[in-house]
């Protein structure tokens, strides 16, 4: 299937500013959950705003559902629901009125029962007639989500949905997201937190300084995350690995002064004990042992610092 969102060589320069997006290309598959991971000012909101039509493109193309977001904006925007990063709501309007307005704006016939079902899914039904100014921050966040879902979109953007949100709302939100995914909705969320991307995403894109540094299946990333390194420093260097270690994933390093062994922490047997006893029986004397885990955080920090050099 062609990607539902196709961004090609996208460049965005704000007036008087540098490049907020620098030759970004991303293809987002229909039905997936993509986490856009990046530090402040990385360009996450800018990318989303361009796809939604809130910000103008400097160069490049963006298509949604096979249609160009500039030329065919009516078709592309009708597919999209956006939950913005900031809590922007009319203080004197009621929850129900505000959500109904959103549905109308997106060209849908009024449908009271659908809106009520969205509100109840977000535990807002009892606040239906409350004015925005009477709601807490977390409730306002829920209203923004309800607005975005009011027209049954095929694509949902969540721009930092968990900012200022408690554990309970976060759980509710992930439930909603999971349910939407089951219905085939494509979800793009931005976050600063790696755990969040791990928790919910199918794929993770790391963005910094307006560039996509990496985009990969989360499971593959997690596999890297799941492997650990054991570094064995030796008393005396060895020139070759003994034959008894030929079918073990171990390499010589530092001119034979140490050995590096990769193992899966989640596996039933890590193979460390047998490795150590083989080494002992070969008469190899150890000086020190270190284990090292490459987390998504490391991958992320590595990518970002490399970029900033």
């Amino acid at each position: 299937m062609p990607p539902i969102i196709d961004v090609q060589h996208l460049i965005k320069s704000y007036a008087g500013g540098g490049r907020a997006l620098d030759d970004v290309s991303v293809e987002i598959e229909s039905g997936e959950i993509l986490a856009l991971l990046g530090p402040n000012g990385a360009g996450k909101t800018t990318l989303i705003s361009i796809i939604c039509g809130l910000t103008r493109i400097t160069e490049g193309t963006v298509s949604v559902g096979g249609f160009d977001v500039v030329k065919d904006y009516r078709k592309t925007r009708a597919l999209i629901g956006l939950v913005p990063q900031e809590l922007m709501l009319e203080p004197f309007e009621t929850v129900f009125e505000t959500v109904s307005l959103s549905r109308g704006l997106f060209g849908c016939k009024p449908n009271k029962s659908y809106i009520e079902s969205v509100l109840s899914q977000l535990s807002l039904l009892d606040k239906k007639d409350a004015q925005m100014k009477e709601l807490s921050g977390g409730m306002k966040r829920r209203v923004l989500i309800a607005k975005a879902l009011s027209h049954e979109p095929k694509i949902l953007f969540l721009d930092e949905p968990t900012a200022g949100v408690d554990v309970e709302l976060r759980r509710d939100m992930w439930n909603v997201v999971t349910e939407l995914k089951q219905r085939g909705v494509t979800i793009v969320l931005t976050t600063h937190y790696i755990e969040e991307a791990e928790e919910i995403a199918d794929r993770v894109a790391v963005i910094n300084g307006g560039k996509i540094l990496l985009i990969e299946e989360k499971d593959k990333l997690m596999k890297r995350l799941g492997t650990k390194q054991l570094r064995i420093e030796l008393q005396a260097p060895i020139t070759t690995l003994p034959d008894s270690l030929s079918d073990v994933d171990v390499q010589r390093a530092d001119d034979g002064m140490s050995l590096i062994y990769h193992y899966d922490v989640k596996a039933e047997r890590t193979g460390i004990t047998s490795l150590l006893s083989t080494l002992a029986s070969e008469g190899i004397v150890l000086r020190d042992l270190q284990t090292y885990q490459s987390s998504l955080e490391d991958i992320f920090v590595g990518l970002v610092t490399e970029e900033n050099k």
């Binding site: 809130l54 009516r74 925007r77 999209i80 997106f106």
Partner: peptide, 18 residues
């Protein structure tokens, strides 16, 4: 001006309307 001031203008601007 009010929706512009509040930021709620993002919605009509991202809606499928001319």
């Amino acid at each position: 001006y009010f929706p512009k001031f509040l930021g709620t203008i993002y919605e009509p601007l991202s809606a499928p309307i001319s």
